[in-house]
Design a protein around this nucleic acid. Structure first.
Lengths: 229, 229
DNA sequence: GCTGGTTCTTGAACATGTTCAAAAGATCGG
DNA sequence: CCGATCTTTTGAACATGTTCAAGAACCAGC
C-alpha cells in the first residue's frame, strides 16, 4: 500500500494527482446528483480513469465518503477560528460553532443521510465512534474544548473536563436531527439550536445549587466509568 | 397488489403461507449467518421458492428486516407485561424494561449493526423516526408510558406527559451504545443501564427544587415547540 | 541505457440486490 | 366445464459495488 516515503514526498508524486482528481470528481458528483445515484463507473468515467483505478486509491465507495467527511471537518474547524476569536459568552460561542457547522454542511444536506447510514454501522470506519475516525473526532472535541476554555463559564473542574465531549455528543444529536430535517431552510434545526443552547447554558449554571451539585458529580463519575470500562 | 378482502381472510389464503415461509426462512438465515452474508438467492433457495417470489411479498431485503424489527418489538412488549405487573418503584420498572430489551435482542446483537445501518438513513422506512415505523415506535413509547403511569414517581404534569417519549429516546441512545458494545456479555451496556437509571431517577426528583423547576418547564416547552414546528 | 522491482492502470469478471415480462395457478360467473 | 380475471410464481436480465490478473509506466542502480 503506502510506504514511509509516501508520507513525505507524496505531494508531488504522480499518483497523488490521480488520487485528488478522483476525490474531487467524486465529491462533485455526490453534490450534483447525490450519493446513491453516483456510480463508481460514473466517477471513473468523469475523472477519465478506469474503475479499478478508483479502487486502487479508495478501497470502497464509503472511503470516498470518509474523505469527504474529513474535508467537512476541516472546513468547520477553519470556520470556527474567527467565531471563537471575538466572543467570550459561552452560549454565543456554542451557538456560533453549531451554526457554522450547519452552514458548512448545508450543500451536502441532501445526501448526508446516506452518509449517516454508513456511519451508523459499528464496524464501519465511517462511524463517528470508530477507531479510524478518531482523529476527526478528537479534532472536533478539541473545538468544543476551546468553546469552553475561552468562555466566561464558571464550572466545577470535573464537569468542565468532561464538557467538551458532552458538547460533541450534543452535536451528534443535532446532526441526527438535521439529517431528518426537511423543513424549509432547515428552520427546525435552527430552532433546535437557538432553543437548546440557552437551556444548556442554564442547566450548567444550575450546578451551583447544592442539591444539583451532587447529582452532577455522580453523572461525571458515571461517564468516566463507562468510558474506561 | 392487495385488495380489501385480503385483510379479512388473508390468514388462510394460499399466498399467506408463502409469505410466512419466506419471512421465517429469512430470519433464520439472518440469525445463522448474519444479514450481510445472507443473500436473497439463499433465502429463496432455502425456502424453496424463486427469487422473484420473495420480492413479490417483500419489496426489498430491508423489508424483511423491518418485519424482524416488528417481531422484536412484539417480543419485548410481551416480556414487559410481567415486569410491570409486579413492581411499583420507578427506577426498578425502568431498569426491568430496559434489561428485558437487552435479553430479547441478544441473539441478534451481532447483526444488529447492519440493521441500524439501514435504520439511520432518514428516508429508509426502517428509521425509528420514519412514518412506516410509527406503529412500532408508538407501541414502544406506550410501554414507557406504562412504566411512568404505574410507578410511584411524583412529577409536574407537563414533564410527566413528555417523559415517555424522553425515555424512548433514552432507549434509542442505549441501543446505539449497545450496537457498538463488544464487551464480554455486554458488560458495558449493563453497566450503562445500572448506572444511568438511578441518575435519571434522581434528576427527575430534582424538579422539586424551585430553581430547577423553571428550567425543566422551559425544557418541556422546547420539546413541544420542536415537535410541532 | 538496460534490468529488476515498484507503482500505477486497465477492463473484464464476479456477487448480489432488484426488476419485469411472461407463464402458471386459482377463482368465479355463466 | 369455459373463459376471463386476478393472484402467484418463475427465471432471466439488469445495475452496480467490488475484485483481480495482467500489463504499462516509472524509477533506481548498475
Amino acid at each position: 500500500m503506502t510506504t514511509l516515503t509516501d508520507v513525505t514526498d507524496s505531494a508531488t508524486a504522480k499518483g497523488e494527482q490521480t488520487r485528488e482528481l478522483i476525490l474531487s470528481t467524486a465529491l462533485r458528483l455526490f453534490r450534483e446528483q447525490g450519493y446513491g445515484k453516483t456510480t463508481m463507473r460514473a466517477i471513473a468515467a468523469e475523472a477519465g480513469v478506469s474503475v479499478g483505478n478508483a479502487y486502487y486509491y479508495y478501497s470502497s465507495k464509503e472511503h470516498l465518503m470518509q474523505a469527504y467527511y474529513d474535508h467537512l471537518q476541516e472546513q468547520h474547524r477553519e470556520a470556527t477560528v474567527a467565531i471563537l476569536a471575538g466572543e467570550k459568552s459561552f452560549p454565543k460561542r456554542l451557538t456560533g460553532v453549531l451554526r457554522s457547522w450547519l452552514e458548512v454542511s448545508e450543500p451536502y444536506h441532501e445526501f448526508a443521510g446516506t452518509f449517516f447510514k454508513s456511519a451508523a454501522e459499528p464496524k464501519s470506519p465511517l462511524s463517528p465512534f470508530s477507531e479510524q475516525s478518531r482523529p476527526a473526532r478528537e479534532a472536533s472535541v478539541e473545538t468544543f474544548r476551546q468553546v469552553v476554555e475561552g468562555s466566561d463559564l464558571k464550572l466545577p473542574a470535573d464537569l468542565r473536563a468532561e464538557l467538551p465531549e458532552l458538547l460533541w455528543l450534543m452535536q451528534m444529536g443535532i446532526v441526527l436531527f438535521w439529517v431528518h430535517d426537511d423543513s424549509k431552510g432547515l428552520r427546525r434545526t435552527h430552532l433546535l439550536i437557538t432553543s437548546t443552547v440557552p437551556l444548556v447554558d442554564r442547566l450548567l449554571r444550575l450546578t451551583r445549587i447544592p442539591g444539583v451539585r451532587g447529582v452532577v458529580t455522580d453523572l461525571v463519575g458515571v461517564i468516566r466509568s463507562i468510558k474506561t470500562a
